[in-house]
Design a protein around this nucleic acid. Structure first.
Length: 300
DNA sequence: AACCGGCCCAACCGCTAGTTT
DNA sequence: TAAACTAGCGGTTGGGCCGGT
């Protein structure tokens, strides 16, 4: 991997763009398209590196950009998406037409974070700080029952195929956020290495705080892909994956969340429902995120 | 009017992943 | 296969603006 070639070039302008520079870039791209960004400065007659040109175009000059302040609806959508995707600004931006990742990132860091804090919510988890503290204390001591999954007619411990990976690995698979493909490309849902089967019991014990990353519990999926040697839970493929669509899963066909019958937690309200122990923790690990995504993508 | 501090946002930097040679 | 190159991402920075003193 080489360094970006423009880093070595001298006599290139930096800092704010002048109207003349903007005009040159707009004219060039309008007429010829950007093509290879590294050649744009030369062709457009600019003393800038290609990277700088690209950024200027994407973040400021693109004709399809929606300028101006974010609406309340957009802010809510960003919060929803951030809860699921984390700081994947470019992916969040894809769900907000006319908005750039940079813009969203700035909004998040300057405004939304503050608003959430003012409402007593942790910007990272979007849950009340007090609840985070409780979870911090309890998160390594729960079990969840694989027998719940068997209620769906799946006899355990038979391995069950998880639908996402099959669908996603196909060339014409429905598109989905990278966050999901990162997780599900693994081919199954991997539990952290710290999970162990409880002997003679239908439970999986999640313990060993030293090897379990807290981010998994705080933000749902985040640390699953990094885990190695995880135990797999596989979920049955009931339909032909060829015909499987993202919306099918997001809008209710996802077996685990349907088993758990998760409910959506209001983001802004302080009225957090008291859920059952099992259900709440299962939601924390994946159910809520699935439903949130479902809602969010359903809005679009 | 001058200074100060906080906020916002455009742009930069460093890095990784993917592609080409 | 490895090196070189490009595109794109996320974190960070710095300068301008604005309100308060």
């Amino acid at each position: 991997m080489g360094r970006h070639s423009c880093c070595h070039k001298q006599k290139l302008r930096k800092g704010l763009w002048s109207p003349e520079e903007d005009e040159k870039l707009i004219n060039h791209i309008t007429k010829h398209g950007h093509g290879c960004w590294s050649s744009v400065p030369e062709l457009a007659g600019l003393q800038r590196c290609g990277k700088s040109c690209r950024l200027r175009w994407i973040n400021y000059l693109r004709p399809d950009l929606k300028r101006g302040t974010f609406s309340q609806q957009e802010e809510s959508l960003i919060i929803e998406l951030h809860a699921v995707l984390g700081n994947r600004w470019s992916q969040i931006a894809t769900q907000l037409p006319g908005r750039t990742d940079n813009e969203i990132k700035n909004l998040w860091n300057s405004c939304i974070k503050k608003k959430l804090r003012q409402n007593g919510l942790n910007p990272n988890t979007q849950k009340p700080f007090s609840e985070d503290a409780n979870k911090e204390a309890n998160k390594f001591s729960f079990s969840f029952s694989t027998a719940d999954i068997s209620k769906q007619g799946v006899s355990q411990p038979q391995p069950l195929q998880f639908p996402y990976e099959t669908a996603l690995s196909k060339p014409n698979a429905p598109s989905c956020p990278t966050q999901f493909s990162k997780v599900f490309d693994l081919g199954s849902v991997c539990l952290p290495p710290a999970c162990t089967e409880v002997p003679n019991s239908p439970y999986l014990e999640i313990g060993n705080p030293s090897s379990c990353s807290s981010s998994m519990f705080d933000t749902g999926f985040h640390s699953w892909p990094e885990m190695e040697g995880g135990k797999e839970i596989q979920i049955p493929l009931q339909n032909d994956p060829e015909e499987t669509k993202w919306s099918d899963y997001l809008l209710g066909a996802f077996p685990v969340s349907s088993v758990l019958n998760c409910e959506i937690q209001p983001l802004y309200g302080n009225d957090i429902k008291a859920e059952s122990h099992l259900k709440q923790q299962a939601e924390d690990s994946f159910g809520t995120d699935i439903h949130r995504l479902s809602r969010v993508f359903g809005q679009i």
